[in-house]
Write a protein that binds this DNA or RNA. Structure first.
Lengths: 335, 335
DNA sequence: GCCCTATGATCAGGTGAACTA
DNA sequence: ATAGTTCACCTGATCATAGGG
C-alpha cells in the first residue's frame, strides 16, 4: 500500500532556501525574529516547491489535532441542517477541522459515531441532540472533551446553545388567544425530544396563565405525514392548532382541507421554525422563526473560547421572531 | 499550548504486556503469525490502559490519511442533504474519514474550500456541484486526487454518479401530455445548473418528439419564492407547468390559487424530487422521485474501489420513479 | 545446515520545542 | 537578534534473531 506519494518536506524547503528546517518552521508559524530577506528566501522556496505542511507530522509533534467532532441527526430537516452548515463554516473559519458524523439517534448508532469521533482524537464536540437518547448515550460514554449542545433546549446550561423554545411557543399560543380562540390544541414532536417537550410545556403553561382549558396533547414525529394523521385525532371543539413544527402543520392543513375544513376560516393553524415552504402553503403559515445559523456560529464561538482559554460568550437563548401570515383567523362557527 | 494530554502509547502497552511495540502493532493490524496467548496478553494490556492508536503517528508512518473531502452546497435542500448524509455514512463505514465543507458556489468560496481540503491532504474528493461554476473552479485548481461528481448530471462520465435527469423530465412531460395537455410550460432552475439544463433540454426534446409547441422556458432559482414569482410570467395559453423542482411547484401553486386559478382543474403542475412535503401540498404534487441516498452510497463505492485499485462499480445513471398524485388533470376550459 | 514460526531491534517519517552558537 | 542543532512525538516497515524441527 505504498500509496503515500509524499510531497516535498520542510527539509527540502530548508535546503533550497539554504537555511535549517527550523527557520522554515518559524516562518510558517509567523515568528518575529526573522530577517526579512531570509523570510523571503524561505517563502520563495515554499512557492517553488509547492510545499504544504504535513498535518500528521505537525499534529504528532504538537499533540494537538484541531479536530472538532460534530454529531448531527441524519434526518435532513431544514433547521438541523442549517445549524450544521453554520457550525461547519464557523469551525473552518476558526482554523479548526470539523468532523461531522450523522446518526439516527438510536443508541447503537450514536455509540458508533462517538466511538469514531473519540478514535479520531477530537478536541471538542458539538452534539446536536434532538432526542434525549442521544444525550444519554453521550453521558454514558463519559464526556472526554468540551462539548456544546444544540437542538436540546437550554438543558445543559452554559453549554447549551439554543433559541428560546418557550418564548416561541408562547408567542404562537398568545397569537391564537388574541385572535379569540379558546379551544387550542397542540400537536407536539416525539416524546423523547427536548425541544418538543419545552414547546408542549409552554403551550400548557400559557393556556393556564390565560385560564383557558387545555386539550390533550397529540404526538407526532415532526414529519408532514404525522401532522396529516394527527388531524383525525383532533378534539371536535378545537378551533386552532399549534403544531410543533411547520412540516406537521403542512400535513395537518392538508388533512383538514381534504375533510372539507377551511383554513383559517374554520380552523387556525400555526407552525414553528419558518422553513422556506411556510410562506407558500395554502394559506401561508403563521409561525415563529429561529435563527439556526446564529445558533451554529455561537456554538463554535463557545468551543473556541474554551479551547483557547479565553472568555466564553454568553449562551443565553436567542429570541425567536413571530412571522404572522394567513393561517390564523378568529374562530368560526365550528367551535 | 501544551494542551496535548497524550494518552498511553504503544510502548506503554508493550511494556505492560511484556512484548515489543512491534508485536502490539501486529496485533492491532490483524497479523497472522501471533501466538494466541501473546495476542491475548496484548489485548488485555490495551483494555487495561484504555489505549487508542494515535492516528497522526499512524498517518505519518504510512503516508496515508484516509481522508476523503466532500464539497457540498451550503443550501440545505432535501436532495443535496440526503445525498451528503449518505456519503458521510458510507465513507465512515468504509473506514475512511469524511471531511465535509460547504460552499455557496461562488468562485471564492469554492476555492477556499478546496484549498482547505487539499491542505488537509485528502486522498479523494466528492464534489457535489449543483452549478457549473463549482466544476470550473475545481478544474482550474487541477484535480489532484480521484474525484466523484454528484448533482451534476452525467457530465463527467464514469466519475459522475447521478439519477437520470432526462428520463425523469420525460416521465413528467409525458404524464402531462397523456392527460391531454398541449400548452406545457417549464420553469427551470438556475442558468448555471447542470441538472436544470438537462431537465430543460428534456422538456424541449420531449415536446418536439410529440410535435407539440414549446413555450418559453422560465428561470427560477429552486426556491419556493421563485416559483411563486414565475407564475406571473406564465404564457396565457399554458394549461400545465413542469416545475424544475418541488419547491418551485409549491410556490407556483400558491401564486396560482391566490390568482383564483384552480389546481389541477384550471392548471396542472408537476415537480421534481419528491420532497417529504410534496405529498401534502394542496393538491398533493405529482412528481418524480430520486433516490438520493443510493447516489451518495454509489459515489463512495466508486472512490473506494479506485483507492483500493479494485474494479469500479457501474455508475450508469439511476432510474427515477414517477409518483403520480393529484396535481395533474385534463386541461380545463382555460387553455 | 536449512527452513519455518514468533518476536524483537532499528529506522524513517515531518514537525515543533528547547537549547546552543 | 537571528539562526542552527538536537531531541521527542508514535507508529509501521524492514531486517534480524532466537528457538524448534
Amino acid at each position: 500500500m505504498g500509496r503515500g506519494a509524499r510531497g516535498p518536506s520542510m527539509h527540502d524547503v530548508a535546503s533550497l532556501a539554504g537555511v535549517s528546517h527550523q527557520t522554515v518552521s518559524r516562518v510558517l508559524n509567523g515568528f518575529e525574529g526573522i530577517r526579512p530577506e531570509t523570510r523571503q528566501r524561505v517563502l520563495d522556496a515554499i512557492e517553488e516547491l509547492g510545499y504544504r505542511r504535513n498535518l500528521a507530522a505537525r499534529s504528532l509533534a504538537t499533540g494537538r489535532t484541531g479536530v472538532v467532532g460534530v454529531l448531527a441527526p441524519d434526518n435532513p430537516t431544514f433547521g438541523a441542517t442549517s445549524s450544521l452548515y453554520a457550525v461547519e463554516s464557523a469551525l473552518r473559519g476558526a482554523g479548526l477541522q470539523p468532523l461531522i458524523t450523522t446518526t439516527s439517534g438510536k443508541a447503537e448508532s450514536v455509540e458508533s459515531a462517538l466511538e469514531f469521533l473519540y478514535g479520531r482524537a477530537v478536541e471538542a464536540l458539538v452534539v446536536m441532540a434532538p432526542s434525549r437518547s442521544v444525550l444519554e448515550v453521550h453521558d454514558r460514554m463519559g464526556a472526554e472533551v468540551p462539548t456544546a449542545y444544540l437542538l436540546t433546549g437550554d438543558e445543559r446550561g452554559v453549554w447549551s446553545v439554543s433559541t428560546d423554545q418557550t418564548a416561541g411557543a408562547e408567542l404562537l399560543v398568545e397569537t391564537l388567544i388574541e385572535a379569540g380562540h379558546r379551544w387550542i390544541q397542540h400537536v407536539r414532536g416525539p416524546v423523547d425530544s427536548t425541544e418538543a417537550e419545552l414547546r408542549a410545556a409552554a403551550y400548557i403553561a400559557t393556556m393556564g396563565r390565560r385560564a383557558l382549558p387545555t386539550l390533550p396533547v397529540l404526538v407526532g414525529d415532526w414529519s408532514p405525514q404525522s401532522g396529516y394523521e394527527a388531524f383525525a385525532r383532533l378534539d371536535p371543539r378545537t378551533t386552532a392548532v399549534f403544531c410543533g413544527n411547520d412540516q406537521m402543520a403542512i400535513g395537518l392543513i392538508h388533512a383538514a382541507v381534504e375533510a372539507g375544513i377551511r383554513v383559517p376560516d374554520d380552523l387556525s393553524v400555526v407552525g414553528f421554525d419558518d422553513i422556506p415552504e411556510a410562506a407558500h402553503t395554502l394559506p401561508p403559515l403563521t409561525t415563529v422563526r429561529q435563527d439556526f445559523r446564529s445558533v451554529g456560529r455561537l456554538a463554535v464561538q463557545l468551543l473556541q473560547a474554551t479551547l483557547e482559554g479565553t472568555e466564553q460568550p454568553s449562551t443565553a437563548p436567542l429570541s425567536p421572531q413571530l412571522v404572522a401570515r394567513g393561517s390564523v383567523a378568529p374562530p368560526g362557527e365550528r367551535g
